[in-house]
């Protein structure tokens, strides 16, 4: 079953009087449980496409369906609620809240977004911290952690609400190669354990090898789709 379906999506920006196209007529679909990667050089439209799938931005044309819902026309509040209920995000710069401990950072989506009771929160946070192997750092603040540890926390925060889809924009860009490999391996492990669908972007060819499905973008166009890599999931494309 398709978890994500992008149908003829395009995105243009206005820069003064000039209209710049960031994406042209993108058609792709990602099945549940996929471990998909968007590749392409800088400026190819990877981040823009992730933003559309992640309801952070709206397409100028076409539509984006996530979990069967057309998210293209959601209002700001509805989009935020949809993200909180269905999506998880991992950012290149980790984007942890510096005033919160590891535990509190991971707890945030459950406390402030999903408003779960304390018992459920502590169970879920403990489980996910254990899964990403960072339980022993739970009381530390982000500035007391290494880059790899921070990204593990970010992955834990993305997964703690059991989202259907996790989007990771260049999650390894700020990490050394070994740590980057570990983070990607961790994400894949989480997909295997929890069945969560992952879509991440990168332009690092060594990380690309980890992907099971590969979407290649160039100048805002989807130019290639490879499925079934490394024994990964099936994927459809337009």
């Amino acid at each position: 079953m398709d978890l994500v379906s992008v149908e003829g999506a395009g995105k243009t920006y206005r820069l003064g009087e000039v209209e710049i196209a960031a994406l042209w007529d993108i058609n792709l679909s990602v099945k549940e449980g996929a471990f998909a990667c968007l590749v392409g050089p800088s400026g190819s439209g990877k981040t823009t496409l992730l933003n559309l799938i992640g309801c952070l931005d709206q397409p100028s044309s076409g539509r984006v369906l996530v979990t069967g819902q057309d998210t293209s026309r959601l209002g700001r509040r509805e989009a935020a609620i949809f993200r909180g209920q269905n999506l998880g995000f991992v950012f290149q710069g980790f984007n942890l809240l510096p005033v919160l401990t590891v535990y509190e950072n991971v707890e945030y989506p459950l406390l402030m977004v999903k408003r779960l009771p304390k018992v459920q929160r502590s169970e879920a946070v403990a489980r996910v911290l254990e899964a990403v192997g960072i339980s022993d750092q739970r009381d530390k603040y982000p500035d007391q952690l290494s880059g790899g540890q921070r990204q593990r926390v970010a992955v834990a925060r993305a997964l703690v609400g059991s989202p259907a889809l996790v989007l990771a924009d260049e999650p390894t860009a700020n990490l050394d190669h070994a740590t980057a490999g570990m983070v990607i391996a961790l994400m894949r492990q989480m997909r295997d354990q929890l069945g969560t669908t992952f879509i991440f972007s990168t332009h690092d060819p060594r990380i690309v090898e980890q992907a099971e499905t590969l979407f290649t973008l160039s100048d805002g166009r989807l130019v290639d789709t490879k499925a079934g890599l490394a024994g990964g999931q099936e994927v459809g494309h337009a």
Partner: peptide, 16 residues
């Protein structure tokens, strides 16, 4: 600003 973007991305509504 970036932190506000993060909060919104992970589901915090504008009102919150």
């Amino acid at each position: 600003v970036r932190e506000i973007g993060t909060l919104m991305a992970i589901g915090t509504t504008p009102g919150k």
